[in-house]
Amino acid sequence: MTESPLVTVEFLGIVRQRAGDERGEFAAKNLRELWRAVAEQYPQLEGVCLDAGTLKNGYLASIDGRRFTRNSEESLSPGEHILLLSADAGG
């Protein structure tokens, strides 16, 4: 069985406030697995940006800060940086 790649999740904005951490490392093959792993380690994010292990509406993942996605089937590569943030950029 292939091992899941290790990726870094960086929490931003309100997610960081709730997580109480800037980042965490997780092993996950795709975003679906990643959100489950994040929810397990940071249960306080349930109801904030995660809903039963999926990404809530109004939140986005950014792969290496360049491309936004909400696709749970998006596969992950080792060493990738996933930013987890609110989609509301009103200022």
């Binding site: 931003l12 950014s62 930013l83």
Partner: peptide, 14 residues
């Protein structure tokens, strides 16, 4: 919680 100033670190990171 953060006000609009919460954009600063997000925008910087992006």
């Amino acid at each position: 919680e953060l006000g609009t100033a919460g954009n600063l670190l997000v925008f910087n990171r992006l």
